[in-house]
Simulated assay, not measured.
Amino acid sequence: MESPVPEGVNQILFSVSKKNFKRAVDRNLLRRRMFEAYRLHKHTLTSLPDQENFLLIAYIYVGKEKATYQLIERQLIAALKRLNDVKSAKT
């Protein structure tokens, strides 16, 4: 979603289902992996200089098994590229 309120940065939400991962340790591990992958690759989301809207992004982990960091990173990079393409197509 695009936020009409200029906050200066994109806002990110990471969610892991309690239904699939009963232990908080497992949920936190997956959230940390997603956050680190996003932190290292957030620069791929280019922002246009005249753009006043920032993004509200939610990443929801839907797998039933713990994924490796490499897999999460690869999928997050692909999602950021798709998001960047959609964002640039709107302008």
Rank of each mutant, 00 (worst) to 15 (best):
2 E>V: 11
3 S>Y: 11
3 S>I: 13
4 P>Y: 03
4 P>M: 00
5 V>R: 13
5 V>I: 15
7 E>R: 07
8 G>W: 04
9 V>D: 12
10 N>M: 04
10 N>L: 03
12 I>T: 02
14 F>K: 00
14 F>N: 00
15 S>T: 15
15 S>A: 15
16 V>I: 05
17 S>I: 06
17 S>M: 08
17 S>H: 03
18 K>M: 05
20 N>P: 02
20 N>G: 00
20 N>F: 07
20 N>C: 06
21 F>M: 06
21 F>G: 04
23 R>L: 15
23 R>W: 04
25 V>R: 05
28 N>K: 08
29 L>C: 07
30 L>P: 06
31 R>D: 05
31 R>H: 06
32 R>F: 12
32 R>W: 13
32 R>A: 10
36 E>R: 00
37 A>H: 00
38 Y>L: 10
38 Y>R: 00
40 L>Y: 09
41 H>R: 01
41 H>I: 04
44 T>H: 06
44 T>M: 13
44 T>A: 12
44 T>Q: 13
45 L>W: 06
45 L>H: 02
47 S>Q: 14
47 S>C: 11
48 L>Q: 11
48 L>T: 08
48 L>S: 12
48 L>I: 03
48 L>W: 10
48 L>E: 08
49 P>C: 00
50 D>T: 12
51 Q>H: 09
52 E>W: 02
54 F>P: 00
54 F>N: 00
55 L>T: 04
56 L>C: 11
56 L>M: 14
56 L>A: 15
58 A>N: 12
59 Y>V: 13
59 Y>D: 04
60 I>Y: 05
60 I>S: 11
60 I>V: 15
